[in-house]
Each structure stands twice: as structure tokens, then as C-alpha cells.
Nucleic acid binder design. Structure first.
Lengths: 238, 238
DNA sequence: AAATATTAAAACATCCGATCTTTTAATATT
DNA sequence: AATATTAAAAGATCGGATGTTTTAATATTT
């Protein structure tokens, strides 16, 4: 029999308040858009100092649950947690975990080929147009500047959004964002960029034909190419 | 040409400090285990009040980047971001997104069958033993109590850990955790639990045979069963 | 000498209240 | 009617006083 006690958590006033407010949100007692009482009022209500309440507000803001605005008719407003918060959190986590490039590729290979399969069955002409525009913009860009990565993320994000699964969306977006950071470090070059555009073009061509298997195959190839391209850049820059 | 300006962010002292410290961590200027200066010292160093620095520390703690301890040799210590932070963040995000059960299942069906395929090729006898113990514990539990969910998570976590991909690990764990919350809400019953155990047993049996396809098939079936079982519980409880 | 109890200091936790800044709504002016 | 001014609400920042926790050093007891 293995005992399994949790570390005794320091009871901190702000922590207690954070819990209470978060629970109230999760239980539906407070709703998105609601304004919480002002620091002064709420601290009096809790019977604590303003600083303690402020810290709680700060933490809830860091969690993405509150938006705090200054000025008259400002205050603490409950808001939906933005996907950015999740992405930031995962990025911080992965920074320490520091997984290899193969792990990123493997994860992508499990999901993104399946996603384009779904896309092939339901994509509209308008959506194809958006993807094409994305590729054109990418090809038009002077050279491998920052915006390229945003376009790259946008391409894969658009695909997963078409598939219409919010859980896969947050996953794909997060992995893309984390991967971009690696690309920046590796100083990917023009040659790499061309390869990416080519891959994207192939995928879209298969989507235009509404051919799931073909699209899936191209996506798989694209993911492998990206990994190889990044490895090559790493070699060149060492 | 579509302009794309970011919202002007309020410059806040604590925010500025958070950025500086986070960057220092990300650039390797500060390492895991390092102790940051005391509140008093560091606030003097930045030329700000103690409260502002405290807020920054609180936020960094919320991000999981710092551990703050009271007492004599206490202080703010840099630490690796724990997976819990990611899971909490995703759970908060999904609370507002509120995806359907099918989305969870679809996401799982893309990944977990592939994971057990890998497991089948590399699982050790010791690992099989751990999985078996997990199932036994689950069957031994009096009735659908809280701990069942922990065992359920542990089972799937063990599998993805065997596969050895940290990105997939954080994803599977997060989805499992989010799913468990849904199960709690739906008050899954004994019948459901039995079905879960049966699914787990089938998967392990295939792993013992080191049969990737069989294992993958059982996992797929298990995921479908869980979805159907949860739907059934939902019906019964409405 | 070893075990135990006491004390002191470092560092965070909390509180209070004063003052500054931002934002908006109401009002006054042109 | 448009613009400028003013007032008030609410957060932002500051600084210092006091409390609490934790640990290390010291003293005491057995």
C-alpha cells in the first residue's frame, strides 16, 4: 500500500480568494461580461486588505479569467479564457521539457493528415480561396521575415478550423506556435521557405480535388519535409 | 491590404517586471533552482515599490515559473513549469469553449490508437504489470468513487508515457483530465465502470501479444464505448 | 554527547492609507 | 452642434508598519 499525500499548501489569502472567484465562475454564479466589485468594495466584503484582493485579481488575470481595466467604469471583468493563454502555458512548459524535433513531427503526423482528410470532405470554395491567398502572400513575402511564420501558422490553423474540432484546434495551434519558436532559433532560410510553400500548394491541390487520401498523403509528406528542412538548417548553422 | 494593429497594452510596472524575468529565464540568464533576490532587495534594484514587485512574483508564480516560499531561507525560486499548469489552463479554456463529447472522442481517436500501436512494439513486462495492477485496483474499488477517475487517467497516461512523446503526453493527459470533469458531471455509474475496465483489459491483452493492430483496434473500440456510455448516462440522468 | 528547547533573523504575508494616473461621463463653452 | 473643461470612479503605485513562517544558531537539559 503506497500512501500518497499531497504537499500541504500554504494558505494564502489571495489564493483563497482566487479559488472562490474561480469556483463561482465555474459554477455559473458569475458569468462572462460580469464586472466584479471594485478593489475597495470587494476587499471590504472579504474582510481583507486591498493588496490581498489585488493579488488575487492579478492571478486571475494571469489565468485569463479576468480583464482589468483602469478608469471610470473600469474594473475587473470576467472573460472567456483566450487560446493565447493555453499556448503561452504550453510554450513555457515545453521550454523546460525541450522535446526533440521528432516528437513534434510525430505528434503532427498523427493528427494533421487526419485533419485534411476531414477537410477534403467538407471544404468550401471560399475556404479554398482563403488558403490560396495565404500561399500567395507567403510566396510574395520578400524573404524569411517574421510574418512568414504567422502565415504558416494561419495556414494550418485554417485547416484545423475547417475540420471543426475545437480540441484539435487548440492542440494544432499550440504545437505550431511552439514549432515556430524552434524555427526562429534555427534561422530557416529561403530554400526551406520554398519547400514549405510547395507543400502547402500540394495539399490545397488535393483539397480542390476533394481527395482525402491524396490530401492526407501530401500533409504527411509536408510534415516530414519540414522536419528534414529544419534538421538541414540546424546542420548548416552549427 | 489589411492592417493589423495590436491592441495597445497598458504598461504596468508589474507586467514589465514579469516580462524581464521571464525573458531572463527563457534566455538562460536565470536557471531552474536559482533564487531571485528578496522582495525588498529586488524592488530597490528595479526602483519600484515592494507591492509592484510582489504582483510580478505572484503572476510568475501563476505561470508556474516561480515557487515562492516563506521563512528564513525562503524566497522566489525558479522552477520548471509543471504539467498541471498546462492542464489547468486548458481546462479553463475548454470550460468556455464547451466542446461536445464527439469532439473529445474524435481527438482521442486520432491519437490514442496510434499510441498503443507504438506501445505494442516496445512495452516491457514490467510496464504490462503496472497496467494490470491499475486495472485490478480499478475493479477492486467499491463503487464509482473519485479515485476511479484517477486510475483511469493513470492508465491512459501510462500508455502515452510508454510511447515516449512528451508532446502527445501533455495532450492526452489534458484531454483525459478535461473528460473526467464531464464524467463527474454526468454521474457515470457501475455499468459504465465495468465497460471501462473491460476495454482496458482488452487493450492490455493485445499489448501482451505485442499486436499493434489489435491493440489499436481495441483502443478505438474503447474510446467509442466510453463516448456511448457517457451519452447513455446523460440520457438516464435527464 | 546527544537530544531537546529556545532564540534570533531572514523573508514572505498582510494591512493601511496616501497619492498618482487613466478613463469616462457630465457639464460648460464656443 | 461641436469642442473643451471638469469631476468622479477605479485602478496603479508607493512606502512603511506589523504579523507569521521557517530555518539556523544557540542554549539547555538529560
Amino acid at each position: 500500500m503506497s500512501f500518497h499525500f499531497e504537499n500541504v499548501k500554504v494558505s494564502r489569502i489571495s489564493h483563497n480568494i482566487v479559488d472562490q472567484i474561480r469556483n463561482a465562475i465555474m459554477n455559473g454564479e458569475i458569468n462572462v461580461g460580469d464586472r466584479l466589485p471594485s478593489e475597495t468594495d470587494f476587499s471590504k466584503h472579504f474582510g481583507v486588505s486591498k493588496s490581498s484582493l489585488r493579488e488575487a485579481y492579478r492571478v486571475l488575470e494571469a489565468y485569463g479569467l479576468l480583464e482589468i481595466r483602469q478608469g471610470m467604469s473600469g474594473g475587473a471583468f470576467v472573460q472567456k479564457v483566450d487560446i493565447e493563454v493555453v499556448k503561452e502555458g504550453l510554450a513555457n512548459y515545453l521550454f523546460f521539457k525541450n522535446p526533440g524535433l521528432e516528437e513534434y513531427s510525430q505528434a503532427r503526423m498523427f493528427i494533421e493528415p487526419e485533419i485534411v482528410k476531414i477537410c477534403a470532405t467538407k471544404i468550401t470554395d471560399e475556404e479554398i480561396e482563403i488558403l490560396n491567398q495565404n500561399i500567395e502572400e507567403m510566396e510574395r513575402e520578400p524573404d524569411g521575415e517574421i510574418f512568414i511564420s504567422d502565415l504558416d501558422i494561419a495556414f494550418h490553423k485554417k485547416l484545423v478550423d475547417i475540420a471543426g474540432n475545437s480540441i484539435l484546434s487548440v492542440f494544432v495551434e499550440s504545437v505550431q506556435t511552439a514549432l515556430i519558436r524552434l524555427k526562429r532559433i534555427m534561422h530557416t532560410d529561403k530554400e526551406f521557405l520554398d519547400k514549405v510553400c510547395e507543400g502547402h500548394r500540394e495539399i490545397v491541390s488535393a483539397l480542390i480535388e476533394r481527395d482525402p487520401e491524396k490530401a492526407s498523403g501530401f500533409m504527411l509528406k509536408h510534415i516530414k519535409d519540414v522536419e528534414e528542412g529544419m534538421q538541414a538548417c540546424r546542420m548548416r548553422n552549427l
